[in-house]
């Protein structure tokens, strides 16, 4: 198997005037292409921070981060942005759809930023919406959709550019169990087609979908379950 990303002694420290908070403390981990990894741990253990760094939304304070064998931890926003939009899709707990744009336009957005022509965009958006079974609502606005539908749109947006990695931060956190399951099944099917998936979750049920669980506590990895195989 090929390594997609590697971190070595990754640390993240937040400083305010008086307080210094260590969110991540020397975290080293490897994720292979095609893996489905769940990151778990109590609130404040650094899960989201780790995910933000893996998604190149944020830089670590210390340590190294290799993304496709490229050391990216010192990259500036511009370069990170280039890598990010080409390779990574995001799914958030609160969906983060743009209210002013309709379903179709929301899904189309990453393709616009990738500079893809409108003809190609149409095909890709339609394909993604079809996969998520949202074609019938493509002219609706986010506020007109149920939470489950919104998250399906968010997943469609995350996959539309065909990224090699999808990062999902509590993707079922705002959904009931039926809708949550639906979304997890979607992610699983994406994973089966070769997309690497990393989710942050509180839910053991969600974690069950993954092949590996990484448990964080106070910014450190305290447990890695390599035995879970589907």
């Amino acid at each position: 198997m090929e390594t997609l990303l590697q971190t070595r002694e990754l640390s993240k420290i937040f400083r305010t005037d008086e307080v210094e908070t260590v969110a991540l403390n020397k975290v080293s981990l490897d994720i292979q292409k095609g893996e489905f990894v769940a990151v778990m741990g109590p609130s404040g253990c650094g899960k989201s921070t780790l995910l933000n760094i893996l998604g190149m939304l944020d830089n670590p304070s210390n340590g190294k981060y290799f993304f496709q064998n490229e050391e990216v931890s010192t990259y500036k926003e511009r370069k990170r942005s280039l890598l990010r939009k080409a390779n990574i899709g995001f799914v958030f707990q609160n969906f983060n759809l743009i209210d002013e744009l309709n379903v179709y336009e929301n899904v189309e957005l990453p393709l616009i930023y990738l500079g893809i022509g409108s003809h190609d965009r149409k095909a890709k958006v339609e394909e993604a919406l079809e996969k998520m079974n949202m074609t019938h609502r493509q002219r609706s606005f986010p506020l007109q959709l149920s939470g489950g539908q919104q998250q399906r749109v968010a997943v469609a947006r995350a996959v539309v550019a065909n990224p090699s990695l999808i990062l999902a931060d509590e993707p079922t956190g705002n959904l009931d169990s039926t809708h949550g399951e639906e979304v997890m099944n979607l992610l699983e099917s994406l994973n089966r087609n070769g997309t690497t998936i990393v989710i942050v979750t509180h839910s053991e049920r969600d974690a069950d979908y993954s092949q590996r669980i990484i448990r964080l506590f106070d910014g450190k990895i305290i447990h890695e379950n390599f035995f879970k195989q589907k």
């Binding site: 998604g55 280039l82 990010r84 983060n96 743009i98 990453p110 930023y113």
Partner: peptide, 16 residues
């Protein structure tokens, strides 16, 4: 703010 954040996550440049 939120919209701008999302757009940036999705790859929008500062200039755009």
């Amino acid at each position: 703010t939120k919209e701008i954040g999302i757009r940036k996550v999705l790859g929008a440049s500062e200039i755009s």
